[in-house]
């Protein structure tokens, strides 16, 4: 009986070990002119998620999508005993890559990622509950840009605070974003999380409808490449 118990517990342990994983994650910004705010990369139980397309954004997602503040989403991850990779404070510039190491616990079987796009009102790049493969290897994923649906895409300078209009313009963007735009729109008809329609922009640095440069600060999906190595 004791021996049988021992065998049983060993089997359980090895089963658990098969689900925990050591991941190396490389994120690459594929765009020519879009910056990404600090990236939240986390493994968590499949029952939880950071965002759901076709549903209204949570307050925490809104904070991230409108202002780049991932503290709310990080709290959600902590609350479900998820594993978040160490957050790197810098923006990820066009063409640049960023590497993350992540050790996952057995229950955290899916991987998610969020980061706000600049300059935008509430666009973010997202990965929603990707099942972490149990087989060692290198996996390549292409990520799309989503609209949180929480703010009108007026494309003019403003606030990164949740619920306040306009785009946050942190220092590296200061010189790249125009001024004096009249605003592309004051409405957001789809208030659920959806695929972003892209920036409109204009070709005027001063004035016009938008403070976004239409020739550079646009994108087509996918906008990021994620290379996940399962060790």
């Amino acid at each position: 009986m004791k021996l049988r118990n021992l065998i049983l517990s060993t089997a359980l342990l090895s089963g658990a070990a098969a689900n925990a994983a050591e991941l190396n994650i490389e994120f690459q910004n594929l765009t020519q002119g879009i910056y990404f705010t600090p990236i939240l990369v986390a493994a968590h139980p499949a029952e939880s998620s950071l965002f759901e397309t076709g549903e209204s954004a949570s307050d925490e997602l809104q904070m991230m999508a409108e202002g780049g503040d991932i503290s709310g989403l990080a709290n959600i991850i902590a609350g479900v005993n998820g594993n978040a990779a160490e957050v790197q404070a810098e923006l990820t510039a066009p063409g640049m890559s960023r590497s993350f190491a992540l050790s996952t616990d057995a229950n955290n079987t899916v991987l998610s990622l969020t980061s706000m796009l600049l300059p935008t009102n509430d666009a973010f790049v997202g990965l929603d509950n990707w099942t972490i493969p149990t087989e060692a290897g290198t996996y390549t994923l292409y990520l799309n840009a989503y609209d949180a649906g929480t703010e009108a895409n007026d494309e003019i300078r403003g606030s990164g605070a949740p619920g306040q209009a306009g785009m946050p313009v942190p220092p590296p963007l200061e010189a790249l974003v125009g001024t004096g735009g009249s605003g592309v729109t004051a409405e957001e008809t789809n208030t659920t999380v959806h695929i972003h329609r892209g920036n409109v922009g204009d070709s005027m640095n001063d004035g016009g409808i938008s403070d976004i440069n239409s020739s550079v600060q646009r994108w087509l999906n996918p906008i990021a490449k994620l290379t996940v190595t399962v060790q």
Binding site: L30, T31, Q32, G33, S215, V216, R218, W219, L220, I223
Partner: peptide, 11 residues
């Protein structure tokens, strides 16, 4: 920009 990227699309 002098680096290769995905294309932003035409205006």
């Amino acid at each position: 920009v002098d680096f290769v990227s995905m294309h932003p699309g035409i205006v």
